[in-house]
Nucleic acid binder design. Structure first.
Lengths: 171, 171
DNA sequence: TTCATACAGTTCTAAAAATGAACTGTCAAT
DNA sequence: ATTGACAGTTCATTTTTAGAACTGTATGAA
């Protein structure tokens, strides 16, 4: 599969991965959320090669996730800051962080705690249903093809029936 | 940076990326959530090379995200199914999908709609504070070092002060 | 009995991407 | 005149990925 083809897939997950689904983009964005704005800042915080950093920043700008803003004229210098589209990735970041907090901590505990300014408490992010407010889990969600679904699509086979007859020895 | 080093970083986001932050793992997991379980199913749905698919499945099993369960003896065959750790990635998937739905759809609209069985409505996933239930945004959250933070860490410099004096021409 | 097909991989070579290190160019401070 | 900060670019080397073919067990068909 060509990697750019992802953005044309009739799947919002695939398209999102086309934008931020490589090894570095999310780490660069982590730095953005931690208020890093400049090339050297990203580079020294992440240890990414300068070559790749330049590439990734360009891509994120092209995708509208970051904006490149001049902050000095003489030797042209720019800062990279999150656009609204970029800020909207916050739930993605929090979901990833929370999974790591839940499943990947060592005996010492979480590296970072989050405080919600509105209520003043340390919190966990919870994914809820916009309609009823209940926390979501995979089993309580049913998917339907939407208007942008591929018309007659063999792309997401929910099952491969018909051929599984043979495995009756276990059923 | 060695890629395995990510899992030792004192950052839950980095550790999570160490597990699922490559080009294919999240797409494989998408298929898992859509109830694909077998090698051929993943391969034909994704178009991933067989070689990589085998590698990624092994890694996901090693990480405890998938479990490899025999479903036929004669020619040994296995199914890959989500563990609880894997199911816990659901908020990550939903966050990614929702961002794609918001920022990456074409004129035709969303490829997939989600229905919440509990309330019967089509919904969007919303990330809220576990303490007060309000939706979260980056600006309302303050981070503190937790118990697992690196002791004297120059790893996540919130700023590079001291040297920025020169750029006063703009300030 | 032979042949084709399903399934779950493994092996191999070529192509693409990432790493590491050095280099470029502008300006400020010394 | 020299040094250092900053934001890249260039290039050789290494690592990953893609693409295709191959392996091996078993089933069903001819």
């Amino acid at each position: 599969m060509k990697w750019d083809a992802l953005e044309e897939e009739p799947c919002s997950l695939a398209r999102t991965i086309g934008v931020i689904g490589d090894r570095w983009s999310l780490l660069i964005l982590r730095e953005c959320f931690l208020r890093t704005r400049r090339f050297e800042g990203f580079q020294s915080a992440l240890g990414i090669t300068r070559h790749l950093l330049a590439e990734r920043l360009k891509k994120l700008v092209r995708q509208g996730v970051l904006r490149r803003i001049p902050y000095r004229e003489a030797p042209k210098r720019h800062e990279y800051i999150l656009t609204q589209k970029g800020l909207d990735l916050y739930p993605v970041m929090m979901a990833l962080v929370h999974w790591g907090d839940t499943h990947m901590v060592d005996e010492r505990g979480r590296p970072l705690l989050h405080e919600h300014r509105k209520c003043g408490k340390l919190f966990n992010p919870v994914m809820v249903c916009s309609e009823c407010g209940e926390p979501l889990s995979a089993k309580e969600v049913h998917t339907h093809p939407g208007p942008g679904a591929r018309p007659a699509s063999p792309r997401l086979p929910v099952d491969k029936p018909a051929k599984a007859k043979r495995s009756r020895q276990a059923a």
